[in-house]
Amino acid sequence: MADLIVISFDSETQAEAAYNEIQVLQNDLVVELAGLALVTVDGEGKTHVQHPGAVGNVGLGAAGGALFGTLIGILFFVPFVGLVFGGLFGALFAGIDKTGLNAEFRERVKSSVTAGRSAVVLYATKLTEDKFAAALAPYGGTVVQTSLSAEDEKALIHDLDAGPRG
């Protein structure tokens, strides 16, 4: 099972510090990441996404990375390079509504990451919760979390792979 965790922050500075700390925690084996992104929303409401590239020992491969990119796009309505819209996007929304990433979860994320705020989004395959929480506590933030079961994760990857190729 993987955890998709969204942590929103009052400032970009706090979010960047937490984002950098999570990368250190990955190196220290406190968290195993399949995806990590820093999402900032400027004063005009425009969303910007930054990710560290290869996150290290990913393990999910291209489909998992594409899934994470698609999840970011759906949560923040940010199109990612290579994301095919149309039938694929509709199929993913239908599949996601069956998982913990339902409309209620997406609305909580949208309302917690608004103009002037930032967020760190991570897709963790393994997490030592107490060490992770202690390391991120100094940065503050509001946590919105959902867990994807292994079945839900496979279904979403299947939906992603079943879409048209561009």
Rank of each mutant, 00 (worst) to 15 (best):
E16N: 03
K154N: 01
D10L: 07
S118R: 05
R117L: 02
A137H: 09
G61Q: 09
M1G: 13
G163N: 11
V41S: 05
L160R: 09
P79S: 15
G86D: 14
A66D: 11
D159S: 14
K126R: 14
A62L: 06
V144T: 15
Q23R: 08
T142D: 04
G95D: 12
Q50L: 08
K131A: 10
S11D: 06
V41N: 00
E151N: 13
V39G: 03
L156Y: 08
E129P: 01
Y123W: 09
T146H: 03
F93V: 14
Y123S: 10
H48C: 00
L71P: 10
L83I: 09
G69F: 10
K110D: 12
F76D: 15
G56Q: 06
F93W: 13
K154L: 04
V41H: 04
S149Q: 07
G61P: 06
D10H: 12
T70L: 14
L88P: 03
A133S: 10
D10W: 03
A37G: 02
A94H: 06
V41C: 05
A155I: 10
P79C: 12
N27A: 09
S149Y: 09
A63V: 06
T70G: 13
F132W: 11
E153H: 13
H48I: 04
S111T: 15
G82D: 14
G56T: 09
I96N: 13
E104W: 01
L4A: 02
P164G: 14
V109Q: 02
G100S: 15
D97C: 02
F80G: 15
T99P: 11
S111E: 12
S147C: 03
A119F: 10
L156C: 05
A37Q: 01
V24H: 01
T40W: 06
A115D: 06
L33P: 01
G53W: 00
A103M: 13
V49L: 01
D159L: 15
Q145F: 03
N102T: 13
F93I: 14
A135D: 08
E129L: 11
D152E: 15
L60S: 07
G64C: 11
G43I: 02
I7M: 13
V113R: 05
